[in-house]
Nucleic acid binder design. Structure first.
Lengths: 129, 129
DNA sequence: CTCTCTGCAAATTATTTGCATGATA
DNA sequence: TATCATGCAAATAATTTGCAGAGAG
């Protein structure tokens, strides 16, 4: 990949991701960064989010029913997505690296444990039902 | 939901899903079902795949980088997606229902264990690298 | 007969890309 | 001043939807 040059827009996006817990969509990032850069385009947001994901400065989290989410917290941790309301949450739990031994009996691939995605119902949705 | 009526197209789609192991995309299903119903439309395929997923006759598996996959094997099992080649595979491993106890210390939601998605490199991609 | 399902085409949604101009090193 | 980044608009890709007619119950 070509050498990265500094850009104020990218810095702002990176900074926003570091200070939010909501795992925003590209569009949400766009809305926020536009407060500082009113002329920024959605294309630029996408380009930078992908760059940050490549350099490891952000995580790109695919979700069912469209719209990737982004996370500025890059230390290994697990994610949970509520299939009811779509909310993406961090799971603060111990590593499940041993999953490779469990799966390994019939599987010769290598699971990258901390990219595992969990689905279910979040607390709010359980209470509402 | 409204009462379902029989349709030969839906039956054919369901049947194809039951006899393939490849976790096809909607488009792949379309290609195959078109051999029996040359005039079937992609819209109909999508509508029926979604109906089958709702009635529990098929699983809809979201993937990173676009394109849901479908699975006619509806008994609980885990899935693995190769982040290198995109291949979707069944993982024949014991249940990890206890994940709820591990995650539960800091999490009041409910993980539906068998919908957990694992990512990593498949055997083929490991050998090639 | 009534309501569901189909084929077709147009509409949506999320994301990417080409290009001329602007910013960084 | 060479190269990367931006803004804008057009292009893709995956999926959904409106509608008029065909098929199932």
């Amino acid at each position: 990949m070509a050498t990265l040059k500094y850009s104020r827009q990218r810095e702002s996006i990176k900074n926003y991701l570091l200070h939010t817990e909501e795992h925003p969509t590209a569009d949400t990032v766009y809305m926020h960064v536009r407060e500082e850069f009113p002329n920024i385009s959605l294309g630029t947001v996408y380009r930078n989010l992908n760059l940050l994901a490549e350099t490891g400065d952000a995580l790109k989290i695919p979700t069912p029913s469209g719209g990737d989410r982004f996370d500025g917290k890059t230390t290994p941790h697990y994610h949970f997505i509520c299939t009811c309301c779509g909310k993406v949450m961090d799971l603060d739990m111990e590593s499940i690296d041993h999953i490779n031994e469990i799966a390994g009996k019939n599987f010769a691939g290598q699971i990258e444990s901390h990219t595992t995605m969990f689905y279910g119902k979040c607390e709010d949705c359980i209470l509402k039902s």
